[in-house]
C-alpha cells in the first residue's frame, strides 16, 4: 500500500494537494495559537523559568 502511495510522488496534482494540506494546517495552527483568549495563560507559562530563585 505504501508503495502505491509513493507512486504518486511524481503526480503534481497530488503533491500540490499535499502542499495545500500542509500550508492549511500550518496557518490554522498560527491563527489558533495567536487567538487572544489565552493571553493570560501564555503570560503565566513564560514566567515559569523565573519562578526558581537560583
Amino acid at each position: 500500500m505504501l508503495r502505491n502511495a509513493f507512486n504518486h510522488f511524481t503526480d503534481t496534482g497530488m503533491t500540490t494537494f499535499g502542499l495545500l494540506i500542509f500550508a492549511g494546517f500550518f496557518l490554522t495552527l498560527l491563527v489558533w495559537v495567536y487567538l487572544p483568549v489565552r493571553k493570560k495563560f501564555y503570560k503565566k507559562m513564560s514566567q515559569l523559568p523565573l519562578e526558581s530563585e537560583d
Binding site: 500550518f26 495552527l29 495567536y34 501564555y42 507559562m45 513564560s46
Partner: peptide, 24 residues
C-alpha cells in the same frame, strides 16, 4: 529558552512564537 530569560531576568519575548517555532 531557559537560560536567556534567567540571565536577563525577564520572560521570553513571545511564548506564542515559541509554540510555532517548536512545531514548525
Amino acid at each position: 529558552y531557559y537560560y536567556i530569560p534567567k540571565a536577563a531576568n525577564r520572560p521570553v519575548y513571545s511564548y506564542r512564537l515559541s509554540i510555532i517555532h517548536f512545531w514548525a
